[in-house]
Amino acid sequence: MKETSVLCLLYQKNITAESGQDVVLPCRVPSNKTIRAVKWSRADLAKEYVLLYRDDQLDQDNQHPSFKNRVDLQDRQMKDGNMSLILKNVTIDDGGSYNCNIFNGETRSWESINTVSLTVSGQTGGDKQDGPVGLIVGLSVSAVLLVAAVVGFLIYRKHKQQQSQDSHQPPVEFQPV
């Protein structure tokens, strides 16, 4: 068994988060490895990736649009082999299996280090500015009920005034013809 396979088994991890939280997906390699690049990917993104760090900078050329400006390495200097991924403001759409890979400078090849499974609970799409759906529905229903109550009260009042005016008029047989 290769060293990378053992690392993959040891570091396979399940992370659970709430929508809107920032999450750290762990990834470490032995500090004696010569790391030329780090790539975080997901199988469902095809050729696009979550994050690619090489030449001391983030490479956004083939980064999936949903991850732009939301991901970074926990430590860009990768001290102690730390290549953990920070994923900001997670949504349900971020849930899935993430792969941490390095480009090994000694073997000049990509090596899979570990897989992290992320489960996110909460709202979809990350539209936090719209507020929770329950609050919106609750306020909308309350507004409709308030309008219905005001309209009902106005109709009741008009009906009462009509009855009051009718009771003040003399009976038909006493009215002038």
Rank of each mutant, 00 (worst) to 15 (best):
76 R>D: 13
112 S>P: 14
78 M>R: 04
121 S>M: 08
99 N>G: 11
121 S>Q: 09
27 C>T: 02
14 N>D: 07
102 I>A: 02
121 S>P: 01
47 K>M: 08
37 A>R: 00
19 S>A: 15
50 V>K: 03
85 L>N: 04
14 N>Q: 11
35 I>C: 03
99 N>W: 03
115 T>E: 07
40 W>L: 13
96 G>F: 09
41 S>L: 11
45 L>S: 05
121 S>G: 10
84 S>W: 03
103 F>Q: 06
55 D>E: 14
28 R>A: 00
36 R>C: 09
23 V>W: 04
116 V>R: 00
38 V>K: 00
46 A>L: 12
17 A>E: 06
62 N>C: 05
83 M>T: 03
76 R>H: 12
30 P>D: 06
81 G>S: 00
108 R>F: 03
99 N>H: 12
27 C>G: 06
79 K>N: 07
124 T>R: 14
26 P>F: 01
73 L>F: 08
13 K>Y: 09
37 A>L: 05
87 L>D: 07
103 F>D: 04
34 T>K: 15
113 I>V: 15
73 L>C: 11
83 M>L: 14
77 Q>L: 13
113 I>S: 01
57 Q>W: 03
21 Q>E: 15
54 R>D: 10
124 T>C: 11
74 Q>P: 03
91 T>H: 08
107 T>M: 09
22 D>L: 02
113 I>C: 10
68 K>T: 14
67 F>G: 05
129 Q>G: 04
128 K>H: 13
18 E>P: 02
86 I>P: 07
35 I>R: 01
17 A>Q: 06
27 C>D: 00
87 L>C: 09
86 I>N: 10
26 P>G: 02
12 Q>W: 11
69 N>Q: 14
95 G>W: 04
88 K>D: 12
129 Q>F: 07
120 V>K: 02
126 G>V: 03
89 N>G: 15
79 K>P: 01
49 Y>K: 05
125 G>C: 11
20 G>F: 04
28 R>W: 00
110 W>Q: 01
40 W>V: 07
52 L>R: 02
98 Y>E: 08
14 N>A: 06
108 R>N: 13
113 I>M: 08
